[in-house]
Amino acid sequence: MPTPQQARAQASAITSGKAGPEAEAAPVSQLRTLFERHRLSPGHRRIAQYLIEHLPEAAFLSITDLADRVGVSQPSVTRFAAAVGFTGYPALREKLQAIALGSISGGAEENRGNELQSAVDAEIENLENLRRDFADPDQVIHVGRELSASTPLTVLGLRISASLAEYFAYAARRIHPDVRLVTRGGSTAYDALLQSYEAGGSWVLAFSMPRHAQETLAAVRVARGAGLRVALITDLALGAVADEADVTFATGTGSRLVFDSYAAPGLLAAAVLQAMTDADPERTQARLDEYEQISDQHQFFLRD
């Protein structure tokens, strides 16, 4: 078994894209399973999120160093360990080390591709995790119904998340009578959210991809304060924005390249759109038929 120093060096290769996809994606999945089955306080969620994001190094930290890195007290770390089912921090750290070292030994040998192929493999892992999540589609179906009934429906995506919000809003307008897209933060977002509530809206669909913007958190808080409910599509079910949302759908992003990719969040957004179409099939069909007539009349698209 590698020493802690060797593990850190090899783990550095993993996060820089020099090892197989399983070395990164599988540990994240394991930690999510470990932490998300427990009800955690906001302080404990901060510890969990740090461990997920910094596993190769965090697995070998002392309780003092981990507390300092997260910005919590040592007793908080001890209570966190107990909250997720361990007798104390040493037992939790042993589990973290097993996950980190197992990802190194299992992933490096299987690397047969280049950097771009590894990025694709990591996204495949994200999609496989999402497929398992879809084994129980009830929450997606329920939220789709709620979003379909919200008139107007506000879609929020700031900074890097704007592209996903724009995709969702573009498609949703084909099946929903009043979709309002918010891609600018600050007072502009506040105005749009307050106006949506005053116009009778009940839900906001928000996207928050890393790096998570402070203005997204502020906008979600404004929405909740105004009386709107928030459904969130993000990469982690732990964190400040997720804490504020009424419903959170978490799925992994591709982080093997310099800029993240969003295969799984994009598919999750499409699944919510599908749930919206199924929630009111008559309205959906009528609006799609009307749009086809208009697009033919004005020749929006090239003829095949």
Results as ranks from 00 to 15, higher is better:
Pro21Val: 03
Asp136Asn: 12
Ala279Glu: 02
Ile160Pro: 07
His212Cys: 07
Leu51Asn: 02
Arg303Met: 07
His44Lys: 05
Gln285Phe: 10
Glu24Trp: 04
Ala26Gln: 06
Leu127Gln: 01
Glu282Phe: 04
Leu156Ser: 00
Ala19Leu: 04
Ala231Asp: 00
Leu61Trp: 11
Gln6His: 11
Ala135Phe: 05
Thr78Cys: 08
Ser187Asp: 15
Val120Trp: 03
His212Ile: 13
Arg221His: 05
Leu116Gly: 05
Pro137Val: 04
Gln285Met: 05
Asp68Asn: 09
Ala237Ser: 11
Glu110Asn: 09
Ala286Asn: 11
Ala98Lys: 14
Ser163Thr: 14
Gly200Ser: 09
Ala226Pro: 03
Glu125Asn: 12
Ala263Glu: 09
Glu94Arg: 15
Ile52Ser: 04
Phe134Cys: 10
Pro27Arg: 01
Val204Ser: 02
Ser148Ala: 14
Leu92Asp: 00
Glu36Gln: 12
Ala13Trp: 10
Gly113Asp: 15
Leu217Arg: 13
Val220Glu: 03
Arg211Ile: 07
Thr183Gln: 11
Arg221Val: 08
Gln285Ile: 07
Val258Tyr: 07
Asp138Pro: 00
Asp138Tyr: 02
Ala11Leu: 06
Asp136Cys: 01
Ala171His: 12
Ser187Arg: 15
Ala19Ile: 03
Tyr262Ala: 02
Ser105Asn: 14
Thr277Cys: 10
Ile63Met: 12
Leu61Lys: 10
Arg112Asp: 12
Ser62Ala: 06
Val28Arg: 14
Ala218Ser: 09
Asp178Val: 15
Leu268Glu: 00
Gly254Met: 11
Gly227Glu: 06
Leu92Arg: 00
Val84Trp: 02
Thr248Lys: 08
Ala286Val: 12
Leu158Ser: 02
Ala122Val: 04
Ile175Cys: 03
Asp133Ile: 13
Ala83Cys: 08
Val155Cys: 03
Val272His: 01
Ala240Ile: 07
Ile175Trp: 00
Tyr170Thr: 15
Ser196Cys: 15
Tyr262Leu: 11
Leu302Asn: 14
Phe301Glu: 11
Ile141Arg: 15
Ala275Pro: 01
Ala240Asp: 11
Leu156Thr: 01
Leu101Asp: 05
Gln297Asp: 09
Asp138Lys: 14
Thr251Tyr: 00
Ile14Met: 08
Ala171Thr: 14
Tyr262Phe: 08
Ala226Phe: 06
Val230Lys: 11
Thr234Lys: 05
Ala119His: 03
Ala48Val: 09
Pro177Cys: 00
Asp191Ile: 14
Lys18Asn: 03
Glu36Pro: 05
Ala48Pro: 01
Gln214Phe: 06
Ser161Val: 00
Thr78His: 12
Lys18Tyr: 07
Leu158Arg: 08
Pro265Gly: 00
Ser261Cys: 07
Gln214Asn: 12
Ala13Pro: 02
Phe86Pro: 13
Thr183Ser: 09
Ser41His: 01
Asp289Met: 12
Asp191Phe: 09
Met209Lys: 08
Tyr190Leu: 13
Ala108His: 10
Phe134Ile: 07
Ala98Gly: 05
Thr284Ser: 04
Ala81Met: 03
Ala119Lys: 01
Ala67Glu: 02
Val155Lys: 00
Val230Met: 13
Asp296His: 14
Val247Cys: 06
Glu244Cys: 13
Leu193Trp: 02
Glu110Lys: 15
Glu166Gln: 12
Asn114Met: 08
Trp203Phe: 09
Gly239Thr: 08
Ala162His: 09
Val182Tyr: 01
